[in-house]
Design a protein around this nucleic acid. Structure first.
Lengths: 137, 137
DNA sequence: TACTTCTTTGTAACGATTACAACTTTGGAA
DNA sequence: TTCCAAAGTTGTAATCGTTACAAAGAAGTA
């Protein structure tokens, strides 16, 4: 298991304290947080942390391929540590986001109608199993 | 071919002039516009049109299932007239959005891991064929 | 040590969207 | 036909997510 610092160095990113903490957070809490959620979570521990730093860091990480930026039904960007491809499901009742393992056809690095495909996102919406139970009450 | 007014009435939406024009626009120009793009396009013809009306109308249409709201790699919502399911491809160079007919597995009205699926979006990114040609220059 | 570069920070600005209250239109009921 | 309530529209202000920018700080190196 690679350390956070190793991951950063491998991607040509200097391992500053802020960057380590932000990546650490995304590695530990796989909640697809927004920039603001990350900022709020780390603000206690790092009182001088700036929201701009969070945005800058997320931009850097995304450009270097460490993170994936997600657009999941709304006008806010969510981030996740870049791992195996998977599907996202967002509940319309509680807004919770679930990762689904369900495999899907790969269009990555493929040509469709002459377009070169480099990213492939499958986003589902509906009512999650917890909210389904509540509806039944 | 149903008229705009018929479509609105079928969905329990009173056919006001503003609503007719907005739906007409989305039916004619399948460019996945943002609320602002629709407002800009109609502002000449309807000088008193308010941007709030555009937002209200798009919200109503989406709730009634007349339109589909799309989150395609960015923090703005795009709208399209709700037709046959298809895939969206957005070019990273020119930001143009393409509809692709390519069929895909349907999870709609299905259960996955106990979650009830009601919407299913496939979003691709990459370089479109026009930009690919330019890169070659 | 001095210099350059990278990183972080805070503030202000921006764009998309929503809240809200006033005004207008519409469709009955009296 | 007139009056009223409900629905629809409008403009302004506020909010939220994000970016621009310039100054301050930290790190590496000649």
């Amino acid at each position: 298991m690679k350390s956070i610092i190793e991951i950063l160095k491998e991607n040509d990113i200097a391992p500053s304290m802020q960057r380590i903490k932000i990546l650490e957070y995304l590695q530990s809490y796989k909640t697809h947080p927004t920039a603001d959620m990350i900022y709020q979570a780390l603000a206690d521990e790092m009182p001088t942390l700036s929201k701009t730093t969070v945005y800058n860091t997320l931009k850097t990480f995304t450009e270097k391929g460490v993170l994936m930026a997600l657009s999941l039904f709304g006008n806010e960007v969510r981030y996740e540590y870049n791992t195996e491809p998977h599907i996202h499901f967002k509940c319309t009742k509680c807004d919770k986001i679930y990762d689904l393992d369900k495999s899907f056809d790969h269009y990555n690095d493929d040509l469709i109608d002459g377009h070169k495909i480099t990213e492939h996102h499958v986003n589902l919406r509906g009512i999650c199993k917890i909210c389904l139970r509540k509806v039944g009450d």
